[in-house]
């Protein structure tokens, strides 16, 4: 994928929704690849979670903005958030999943810093999502590596 242009609040949230949506699709496909069991169950739970995060991001874009402080965004380098959400084989699912969660955690953590001085409520949402990514990573490690 091309690195996203993250130039303002709308483009940032749009990209985040793309990431969440693609991640949800990835986990759904991964659950199919993994077959019945604890791993597939976790994949389905994470698919639902990422799908629901799309809704949260849409609400954030709609309700947590204030046109008074809609300043241009600088300092987010789109190359740091390039992701690949294709679930190709059972063996690659754990690594791909962790890569996606890592990109998500990085995007939201860094976005929360940028948004902090502009849109405090949006920054809170980003922080919450980043924390959730970190927890997901731990759950993935425990399931696939533990």
């Amino acid at each position: 994928m091309e690195p996203p242009e993250l130039t303002n609040f709308g483009s940032l949230v749009r990209f985040a929704i793309e990431l969440e949506s693609a991640t949800a699709v990835f986990y759904t496909a991964a659950a199919g690849l993994l077959g019945p069991g604890r791993s597939a169950q976790l994949a389905l739970e994470l698919a639902a979670q990422h799908e629901s995060r799309c809704g949260l991001l849409v609400r954030t874009r709609q309700q947590k903005l204030n046109e008074m402080v809609l300043e241009p965004i600088t300092g987010l380098d789109g190359r740091r958030y390039v992701f690949d959400a294709a679930a190709s084989s059972v063996g690659e699912v754990p690594g791909d999943a962790m890569a996606l969660e890592t990109v998500g955690a990085r995007l939201y953590e860094e976005s929360s810093v940028v948004a902090k001085s502009l849109l405090t409520e949006a920054a809170r949402t980003f922080r919450k999502l980043s924390d959730e990514n970190v927890r997901n990573l731990a759950a993935l490690r425990e399931t696939f590596q533990g």
Binding site: L65, M68, L70
Partner: peptide, 25 residues
């Protein structure tokens, strides 16, 4: 919300973020 904002952007010219901010107000 999104339709209202997009119509504002299309008709007035302001960027979609600003249009969303306007509809919010």
């Amino acid at each position: 919300f999104e339709e209202l904002a997009r119509i504002v952007s299309q008709d007035h010219g302001k960027i979609i973020d600003e249009a969303r901010g306007e509809v919010r107000r």
